[in-house]
Design a protein around this nucleic acid. Structure first.
Lengths: 137, 137
DNA sequence: GCTTGCCCTAGAGTTCACTTCATAGTTTAA
DNA sequence: TTAAACTATGAAGTGAACTCTAGGGCAAGC
């Protein structure tokens, strides 16, 4: 399979695929060269890219992905280690979610203040002094 | 107030403060020059940086912040417009949260599979074929 | 007067995951 | 046969928000 075909199949650009190769995410199980130096991809390349996409979708950076794939290839890690890794990844995501929750709390306060400002400016004033800087105009 | 003092007070670096100024987030209400060309910050600068931090904490980019601050300074926007803006900001955050939820769904599936692999490898096998690529080793 | 430690500027470097560019060789269809 | 369409390379560009560097000017204490 040539690069454009693979790109179409995977919904990636040829640039991205070459970039992944340069970053060491693909090796000669996935891509070889023809006599004209064109890349020729195996079916394994498709699976590899699916795996890459999967791990990207759970918030892995390419650097992390590279490690994960190396461990995967060499069967380095035990099931328990993998479970630990998944747990820590979950915590990472959950803490990011909490940050967003915090943003929502703030936005809701702002919204409440702004709404009150229409309905009952005096109460809004009181809210403002109790709170500060919800927007300091 | 000199730049280091302000930086300490706000928990920022002097580089960041100069950067904000270069980006047009501070003007001469906040910073003037002494005869030796040193920056001299007013108390308003402290409030300005607090406001910047507040808006950053609700997920504003500096570009967006710049607009917000300009509107704030010139009193351009009506309360209703601000309410709309807050609502759209909330939606933005919520959709990011949903992305993270999706990641968690995937991670939980992976965790389930990996746990089952210890307790009941046969079921895990079945799960794998029903699902695929939770990790394809 | 010297050292230390602030302050200034313009500009380059950082990180991430691509994306684009310039230039050139290869294949294929008309 | 020639033009279009594909492939290759290395290198530079992108954007966001800083961060750091080089090379210099002030200031305060001894």
């Amino acid at each position: 399979m040539k690069i454009q075909e693979l790109a179409d199949k995977m919904g990636l650009t040829i640039h991205t695929i070459r970039y992944y190769e340069k970053e060491g995410l693909l090796d000669d199980r996935h891509v070889r060269r023809e006599s004209n130096n064109y890349r020729n991809y195996s079916e394994e390349a498709v699976e590899r890219l699916k795996l890459i996409k999967k791990f990207q979708s759970i918030g892995c950076s390419l650097a992390e992905l590279k490690e994960v794939l190396q461990d995967h290839d060499t069967n380095t890690r035990t099931n328990l280690q993998i479970i630990d890794w998944i747990r820590s990844k979950k915590e990472e995501i959950e803490s990011k979610k909490e940050e967003y929750d915090q943003m929502l709390v703030t936005l809701n306060k702002m919204l409440e203040y702004r709404t009150l400002l229409i309905d009952d400016p005096q109460k809004a004033q009181a809210m403002m002094s109790a709170w500060q800087a919800g927007s300091s105009d």
